[in-house]
Design a protein around this nucleic acid. Structure first.
Ligand SMILES: NC(=O)c1ccc[n+]([C@@H]2O[C@H](COP(=O)([O-])OP(=O)(O)OC[C@H]3O[C@@H](n4cnc5c(N)ncnc54)[C@H](O)[C@@H]3O)[C@@H](O)[C@H]2O)c1
Ligand SMILES: NC(=O)c1ccc[n+]([C@@H]2O[C@H](COP(=O)([O-])OP(=O)(O)OC[C@H]3O[C@@H](n4cnc5c(N)ncnc54)[C@H](O)[C@@H]3O)[C@@H](O)[C@H]2O)c1
Lengths: 243, 243
DNA sequence: AGGAGCTTGTGAACGCGAGAACAAAATCTC
DNA sequence: GAGATTTTGTTCTCGCGTTCACAAGCTCCT
């Protein structure tokens, strides 16, 4: 129903609205909200129009009301239980991350295959054996799992998650996961982000060099609009399994 | 020159090729590589065609040769110096992450505004005062900066980075950064990823409910293809500043 | 050497998202 | 209360990315 690109921006709007509300602002125009969210106002209005007509012409949007509507549409008015698997460097950071709870997610369990970690308590939650996964998923009706294990273990963990009934996975391991239809996978991949930056960085350097060697000394004048403009942030799909 | 969507997938291909090489495979078809990378083979071939004709018809691609060509195109045959600012929970994990060095990036400095952290050494790199940023950037010719501070500090840190000459920023803070033209910003936002999953999760639940109430008892049979299919992973642009 | 069998590289069609532009609706002014 | 002003919601167009389908080209076998 709602385009995927719009769904990806709704959380940004939600955050911007929360920031406005925190500053005591009760009403805002599409222009203001768009600036706060880092998009242009036409796109913002079109995105919001998919949810319904929650604005008032000539006035703008009621911050709290719009916030609630977006939150409801995304589904973060309720609390989502989440399990994190792989409590190493990254898993610890995630477990300690306060942004989870404040945005509608609750870490109900931390799981790790390494026995020596089972004594530990991170952010008030005990680290438990990976084999407890099924019991926990059933007990708390967990639908969302986070994978922070090494890449080699990621597919196994995903398979186990799916077998337990988890239908949404956030994967931090640099591995391509195969999952059945109906299971969503999103990946967060630091190295890929850096490599994309490196690519553009290299191009800037090349253009600079070429301009310098053509113009003579200082090829930096005409570059402002030429380098790194207009490129969006979009990643390849990793959802479902392709046939 | 190369479409942005393709640039974002090249690192995935690179990783898949490395995995194949590690398994001793010297040659692969577009079909095999596409499967390993989680995309379809037509897209893979088109992506690779932007780099040149590095395959052999009837045979496929030489794994090592293609790997080198992609690495060269991305710019990871050279080493990129990187600074990380904000050595808290997440900053520690990033500093300890070995995937950096193995993929063409070298952490040359860890910076934090908090004095009490300046004694610390993480993964062999000392945590230094944030004010050392300029000296470090100049000394090591740093072009890429990583922000792992709280959201409130992110814009300040970005401004300082840009002032020092950094032209690529990877931002982990949940904040919209405004930067001048010519500076690339990519964001990694955990909460947004989770919220996108929550949205789809909620929709699955709604469809399940509707089907159950219409079909009578068990509405789960016909759902396989209906829920969470074909949705890609793409995020709103955060590059450059919009006017 | 020549044909059969693969596999790549690309032209063309299609669908989706971005952005501009405008009409509809609310408030404000007098 | 009527017109001016502001701001939303929507239509339309353009461009990009994905996918299909096939011709071009390489190898192997006979
Ligand atoms: N550290 C980072 O900043 C960072 C950044 C980007 C990506 N990553 C990726 O995130 C993942 C985790 O990184 P890390 O630095 O925390 O690694 P880590 O080695 O510190 O932690 C991995 C944890 O997973 C556990 N584990 C291993 N196999 C398991 C299994 N089958 N089931 C359950 N738990 C298992 C290990 O016991 C360990 O505690 C890796 O795939 C890494 O590539 C990490
Ligand atoms: N921890 C996570 O798993 C996680 C996940 C997603 C996003 N994030 C985001 O990443 C950021 C860091 O998270 P964290 O959990 O590591 O927070 P943290 O509070 O543990 O660490 C933040 C660090 O930044 C330092 N800092 C603050 N202001 C600074 C400044 N102006 N200059 C330099 N350093 C400064 C602080 O001293 C601290 O060491 C936050 O914006 C958070 O929202 C964290």
């Amino acid at each position: 129903m709602i385009p995927e690109a719009t769904v990806a921006r709704l959380p940004v709007y939600l955050r911007a609205l929360t920031a406005l509300a925190d500053r005591g602002i009760r009403t805002c125009s599409s222009e203001e909200l768009a600036t706060a969210a880092g998009v242009n106002s036409a796109k913002l209005r079109k995105d919001l129009s998919y949810l319904g007509s929650y604005g008032t012409r000539g006035v703008g949007y009621d911050v709290d009301y719009l916030r609630y509507q977006i939150a409801r549409e995304i589904g973060v008015t309720q609390d989502w239980p989440v399990v994190i698997v792989g409590i190493g460097n990254l898993g610890h950071a995630l477990a300690n991350y306060s942004g989870f709870r404040s945005r509608g997610f609750r870490v109900v369990a931390l799981l790790d295959a390494d026995r020596s970690r089972h004594q530990e308590v991170v952010a008030g939650v005990a680290v438990r054996p990976f084999d407890d996964l099924e019991a926990i998923v059933h007990e708390h009706a967990v639908a969302i799992g986070v994978i922070a294990t090494p890449a080699a273990a990621a597919q196994d963990v995903a398979d186990r998650m799916v077998a337990c009934g988890i239908t949404s996975i956030l994967n931090f391991a640099p591995a391509v996961l195969a999952v059945p239809d109906g299971v969503d996978v999103r990946k967060v991949d630091l190295s890929i982000e850096l490599q994309i930056l490196a690519y553009h960085e290299q191009r800037k350097a090349q253009v600079g060099q070429a301009a310098a060697s053509v113009d003579g000394v200082d090829g930096l004048d005409g570059l402002d609009g030429a380098a790194g403009v207009g490129s969006g942030q979009l990643d390849g799909a990793t959802i479902g399994v392709d046939k």
